[in-house]
Nucleic acid binder design. Sequence first.
RNA 1: GGCGCUAUCGUCUAGUGGCUAGGACAGGUGGUUCUCAUCCACCAAACCGGGGUUCGAUCCCCCGUAGCGCUACCA
Length: 508
Amino acid sequence: MINPIKTVRTRFAPSPTGFVHIGSLRTALFSFLYARKNHGAHILRIEDTDQNRLVEGAAENLVKVMREMGIEFDEGYYLADDGSLKERGNFGPYLQSKRLDLYQKHATELVEKGSAYYCFCSQERLDELRKEQTALKKPAMYDRHCKNLSEDEIKLKLIEIKGQKKNPVVRFAIPQEGQTTIHDLIYGDITYENKNLDDQVILKSDGFPTYHLAVVVDDHYMQISHVIRGEEWIPSTPKHLLIYKALGWEPTQFAHLPLILNPDKSKLSKRQGDVAVEDFLKHGYLKEGLLNFVAFLGWNPKTDQELFSLTDLIEQFDFSKVNKAGAVFDDNKLDWFNSQYIKKLTPTDLANLLKPYWQQSGISFQNFSDEYLATVAKLEQERLKKLSEIGERTAYFFKAPDYDAKLLIWKKSDAGDAKQKLSELANLLSTLTDDKFSNSNLETEIKKFIAEKKYDNGSVLWPLRTALTGQEKSPGPFEVCATLALGLGKKEVLKRLETAVSKLTVDV
RNA sequence: GGCGCUAUCGUCUAGUGGCUAGGACAGGUGGUUCUCAUCCACCAAACCGGGGUUCGAUCCCCCGUAGCGCUACCA
């Protein structure tokens, strides 16, 4: 039944209706992983059969996001250097609106075979029917009114509707007998009674196919081997199977992925937080973190390994490791994954990634050396959960901070004491030559000073650190001091200490 | 209402016909520490319920229950 020699060809087939949903990202990832793992092809097909929901630029955006995330496609659409969408592959076009003839041809074929029929029912009648059925607590299904039309009636209706410059829809005629069972690679066998399946519209009155016809036709002609999609498609899969059968085609394999859930366990949606991949990227999540996190939603390696590169994922991915229950999207875990990947970055790479966020926060970092930026980045590296947090935290590295004089006072001390310590510190630091302003040397000197004077660490280090940063929380005073001297000079360090002293004189 | 899927700590999950039911995130406590973060140690935290099958069930079966999905000329 299953031909193991057949080449693996998977596809990701989104509708260009807006942003890229995090669920789409996972589907795309899994279909990519499976294709690569099996040395097969990964295809990008765009399903634009609903003309009412099209969003301009959505397809371009989608391709761009996929590329940014490192999910590759061997066929279908890609972004050319000039930013336009180009197509490649031998099974095109890969845009459904360019394949209308093909769908119409097969819809007609199905009608001729008696596997489908024209339906002339008005929207009003359909609405009415549904209303009645729900009122009677009956299943809401099409009543096959038009299936029972005589040949003469059909001819008449056809002429009539053409006169109104309209088209009938085509419905698939579900066999009334028997069962259809799907062999899902993740969920196993699921059997449906045919009589419970609705006669789905497969060709709309605007000449476009519905999803149900389009997937079957395209997956067949594009020689797709495995359809990987969300669990919400399970109920329509038997209909697809029946269409394959009516057309005399061999169906693809199916692997349905468990849903990704909101914290309240409903299907992940906007309005309960971010679900757009673009937004996560914009907020400073690294693609490695996002990918790793998303991969663990419904899949796990069955070992204790947590951190996975794309290569690791390709190696270890398998449908047998995908579970069936939906997975709640937990942003704590996402943050953790992200911080892990931030820690792996070299300070220089981190600084480069940080530049747009400094820009966003209105920090003029452009006049500073890359070396300095890297040093600053390194100081925040272990504190960052996402890149967008960098702004306010590092502003003091670029210009003198503004703060309340009270901040300078250590919890176990008072203003007079703080002022005194700062003055002494200023004296000490002014005696140090520039080459003595290294992190380690500063630590040695200041600790020596504290020890000689028998001071508390806190009574000295707290005022020092806050005078330099203007922040309650920050990296340690020695590294801040050394970094500041590197970027803004020893002069600036001493100036900040003076400012602090005068603040304590005037304000407290 | 109909059809279907699912069910282990708050969350992601591992696991087995007999284990102190394991790990990670989050939470808590302690250590390091001027602060925050990191790091380290520790703590708390789960097998949906009821029947079977069995010497023994979290695991196998049945029935409930709950949650979710689908039920469009949307995908």
